[in-house]
Every structure is written in C-alpha cells, then in structure tokens.
Amino acid sequence: MENVVLLAVDGSDGSDRALDHAIARAKQGGAKVVVAYVIEWSPYSFNTPEENATRHKRRETEIERANSEIVAPALAKLQGQGLECDGIVRHGHPAETLIEIAKECGAAQILIGRRGHSGLKSLLFGSVAGNLIQTAPVPVVVVP
C-alpha cells in the first residue's frame, strides 16, 4: 500500500481540525495527502425538465466553487508546509464516494473531522463519519 492519506473535507471547523491532524500525520510519516470534497448528489432524484436542461452548467459551477472555497485553501496550507498533496471534487453519496476515492488513490487511511451532531440529528440525516467507520476498507480516523 502506498503512503497516502485521504482527507475528507467539508469546510467545517471539524474539517479544519482534521486538516491540522493530517499535516502532523503527513510530516511524521512523510505521507502524501489527498484532499477530497464530495458534493452530495444522487442519480435517483426527481427533477423538473428545466433543472435537467441546465444541470451540466450547474455541475461545473458547483465543482468550481467547491474547489476554490474548500479544497484549494486546504491544498495551499498543505503546500505551505512543504507536503505533497492532491485535490479531488466529486458528486455522489458522501461515504460511498469517499471509499471509492480511497480505493482509487490507494489510501492507507481516511481522515475526517467530526461534526458533533447530537443523536437525533445524526439519526435523521446520518453521519458521514459514522458511515465510513462501518463500511471503509481502510482504517478511519475521526478527528474531534
């Protein structure tokens, strides 16, 4: 297995803390950090014809925004520390897509920040970190 860690980001405070942890971890073990942001999306949703007709354009805007606002700042911080890094933005089911990306880049570990949702909220909306822990093929580190 390559020395790669996958860092899942979402722009929250928890994900900033996970970034700090990733920097420490990468410096220690000389690992490459792949920064991934998943835009929540399902191929099985129902849209109006107008939404479908403009979808291609909106997808590009979404990816651009995720790159410039969330992934690029994280990459800049990593590069500032002299670390090797890469960024990915993709649409899909968050946990499933993160696992796919982890497999593709041969990550040895997945790092993710905790959102700290209470029981009810995570019961209703699910928790990406919780899902990852249950289904990921590699160890998952949840940064509090």
Binding site: W41, P43, Y44, F46, T48, E62, I63
Partner: peptide, 12 residues
Amino acid sequence: AGEVSHFQALAT
C-alpha cells in the same frame, strides 16, 4: 457523477 443521469431523464 453530477450530470443528469438516465434515471433522472426518465423520471422527468
């Protein structure tokens, strides 16, 4: 992923 899927086009 993120483009209009076959399912979405059919559903619409």
